[in-house]
């Protein structure tokens, strides 16, 4: 993926002024201090935001995006939240079991870390050719991060992840780009 001369600003606050970047296939972690524009860049790549100037050349058109907030529907169960974006019932149950979540729970019954895992499963099972994840391990402990990282790696898809943690980079065996 090639990003050339990318310009983007929120109202009058400039975020990118002529950003150039090349991202290889595989798993890449995007690092940088808070507010530098990691989420904005992920959204621009996913097509959820339009650049004001510049181009993003990406051969992968069907992108699954995991937001920084879980964005689960509180009126649906865990399983129904996942099945809203996919028909893969069996895989959903399998991943729920691997990440230790009861699919029949209501969203209000989940802890922060559990909700994050549900959002992760939803992102993984959406029919896509690329994954973009904004702080996917937020609220998870070391053991669960390792489990989740293994599942992400097993997808064998180009994956772009924003994170603040080098431990997460290590668990993912990922390349790092610092903004």
């Amino acid at each position: 993926m090639r990003i050339s001369d990318l310009w983007f600003n929120y109202e009058n606050k400039p975020i990118f002024e002529g950003l150039n970047l090349e991202i290889s296939d595989g798993i890449t972690c995007l690092m940088g201090e808070s507010g530098i524009g990691k989420t904005t860049l992920l959204k621009l790549i996913a097509g959820l935001l339009e650049p004001q100037k510049g181009t993003i050349e990406n051969e992968y058109k069907r992108i699954s995006f995991m937001f920084q907030e879980d964005r689960l529907l509180p009126w649906l169960s865990v399983r129904d939240n996942i099945l809203l974006v996919t028909d893969k019932h069996k895989e959903a149950d399998e991943l729920l079991s691997r990440l230790e979540i009861d699919g029949d729970l209501k969203i209000s019954e989940l802890s922060g870390g559990m909700a994050r895992r549900v959002a992760l499963i939803r992102c993984l099972l959406f029919d896509s050719d690329m994954l973009i994840m904004d702080e996917p391990f937020k609220g998870m402990d070391g053991k669960l991060i390792e489990k989740a990282a293994e599942i992400i790696k097993s997808q064998n898809k180009p994956t772009l992840i924003s994170t603040h943690s080098l431990d997460e980079v290590k668990a993912l065996s990922a390349e790092v780009i610092t903004l």
């Binding site: 959820l48 907030e69 964005r71 974006v85 959406f126």
Partner: peptide, 21 residues
């Protein structure tokens, strides 16, 4: 608005957006 953006990202059909959001 976050849920609407989520629906856009996961390409939910108009019916699903209406029914579930």
């Amino acid at each position: 608005k976050n849920l609407i953006e989520m629906a856009q990202a996961y390409r939910l059909s108009d019916w699903k957006k209406f029914r579930y959001i």
